[in-house]
Design a protein around this nucleic acid. Structure first.
Lengths: 338, 338
DNA sequence: GTGAAAGCGCTAACAA
DNA sequence: TTGTTAGCGCTTTCAC
């Protein structure tokens, strides 16, 4: 470890025999400097290994070039892909990103948001834990001070980007019904999340119209199943289930196996999210896919726009979802061959 | 979005009718302030919604209370768990952490390290992509200026924390051999990683001593298999394979299935890392587990120590690994019952 | 116990 | 085109 002090702009200016201002201009490409001086300064800076001090710059300009991303739980396989999409989209717009993982705890979420705003992020991409309670909605006063776009949860006070979750629920139900299933159960994600509510609602409505809703239970976005959920499964009253996420779907499949029931031979399952595991699972999981990259791209775009243009009319961007057919759904009736 | 300016310490001081210094003391718990004044100041600060400006603080103190974490690829299921462990261990020591994902690209890695150091992290936890080339080893000059501890790769110039990978390789081989396997193939991870080399070496040595090494090929830490790897598998010359990571193991299993071969009935597999998928896979994967949390805890501890105590003798901390027996290995001979 | 003031590294307005 | 300088928000020394 080299303990010598990190060179400052002043060092560069002195070494190059110019003023502080010229050095700053040369390095930032702002102001005006003669071509020769600029080149010289740049060279001296490189020689010294000069790196601008971000704190100082931020203090002066009020902008850091950093965006914050707040997610509930990196350990949930849905999020790493999202995080990467954010990293890439941000970079395309010239921003870096600070990721905060809240571990699904509202207190941590507040702390994370505070941490990020304290560190001067220019804007925030927020995937909230909870949008049902007023408490969840207004995680912190900090949020009023910087541009925020909310992902996946339809919070009223911010720009949001969503997928058409209700459509996803309908797609899943239609698929099952078209395959001849009648007795269908749904395990929705936590109702604290609007996305989970919408998914379930879309599914339930469709089922109630064209089939039979055997039961409707709720589970965390997790492999581990609530007693109420396992109890429902234990009833063996359905030939198909719609799960609020792929994690839940996989958890359910495992429980079904425990019961000696096979997927899809005994019961069909469709999930939601199309996480990487979905395709790898045995059997590969039929699920609803949302266009994450496009969604994130759009989110970052609105965020950056807000950063530059300030507050404006709340925007709500909704993306279509689609059914990914794999092997966890079995047709109950043979298709007619004519 | 509330556009009003964020209150500064000065605002607090003025509102509380005290000097800047007293306000600072009260808020930081440093210096000395009368109990009454302190309480009053704190209350005023809270009322104003005052939050210290991290940039200004950092500029003054030269410390940010932030640690940087550089990982190759959050999308690889090994890393999210690691990242979370880092978050938690750091928090326990009073630090926050900035995560940078380099996407496995050396250029990005350099950029990430520069980004983190530019943003004033007090120390760096680095999981390098490559430790074989001098280029990989010295990712950037920044690394000389701040404390760094390296994870998983035995870089000579930094404190490192490792698992005993060679032991892991031996454990895997011994397990297979004890199960009666003789013709064993090994798919090591990329030799650019010392951890992969050590794993493979441990396995190969043991196999050569007590069994037969059918082939030894190399693959990226990925589900997708190199042509050389599939070619080796296609030869059907082994009853067991040792994979350099669980991802590789799962990729190999899938290819084997493609060949009409069943795991573990036709060929046994042992992986490495014990990622979350391992237990969920069909069949559940026998693998080598390393004590991530303990390793990260130790890494953060050394890092924090370096931050406080400065450079010193390079430390190398090695953790034991263990075999996690699941269902991807089949005994070739029945155990004798006496 | 409290306050005044210097200065961290930088940008930008202004002067030359 | 180049240089001088004020000041961003904060901590901390030093005087009171």
């Amino acid at each position: 470890m080299d303990t010598s002090r990190r060179p400052t702009l002043k060092d560069v200016a002195r070494a190059a025999g110019v003023s502080l201002a010229s050095a700053s201009y040369a390095i930032n490409g702002s102001g005006s400097v003669g071509e020769a001086t600029r080149a010289h300064i740049l060279q001296v800076a490189a020689g010294l290994g000069y790196r601008p001090n971000t704190s100082a710059k931020a203090m002066k300009t009020g902008r850091t070039g950093v965006l914050g991303l707040v997610v509930p739980d990196l350990t949930n396989p849905f999020f790493p892909g999202l995080a990467q999409a954010v990293l890439q989209a941000a970079r395309r717009q010239g921003y870096s990103v600070l990721i905060a993982d809240t571990g699904g705890a509202p207190d941590e979420e507040r702390a994370a948001i505070r941490f990020l705003t304290d560190h001067g992020v220019d804007g925030l991409l927020w995937f909230p834990i909870d949008d049902s309670s007023p408490r969840g909605r207004r995680a912190s006063p900090e949020l009023d001070r910087i541009p925020v776009v909310v992902l996946d949860r339809n919070l009223p006070d911010h720009d949001v980007v969503l997928a058409d979750y209700a459509l996803g629920g309908r797609l899943a139900a239609d698929h099952l019904i078209a395959a001849g299933h009648v007795d269908i159960g749904v395990i929705s994600g936590p109702t604290a999340a609007s996305s989970a509510r919408d998914r379930a609602e879309g599914a339930v409505r469709t089922i109630q119209r064209s089939a039979r809703l055997a039961w409707h239970v709720e589970n965390a976005f997790s492999l581990d199943l609530d007693p109420a959920v396992t109890a429902a499964l234990d009833r063996r009253s359905v030939t198909a289930v719609i799960a609020g996420s792929d994690m839940i779907a996989i958890g359910a499949m495992r429980h079904l196996q425990t019961l000696g029931l096979s997927v899809p031979d005994d019961v069909s399952i469709v999930g939601f999210d199309d996480i990487p595991w979905a395709a790898l699972n045995t059997p590969p999981l039929t699920t609803i896919d949302m266009p994450i990259e496009a969604m994130i791209g759009s989110a970052i775009e609105t965020l950056v726009q807000r950063i530059f243009e300030g507050p404006g009319v709340r925007s709500q961007t909704v993306f279509d979802v689609s059914l990914v057919e794999r092997s966890s759904v079995r047709p109950l009736v043979r298709a007619e061959v004519r």
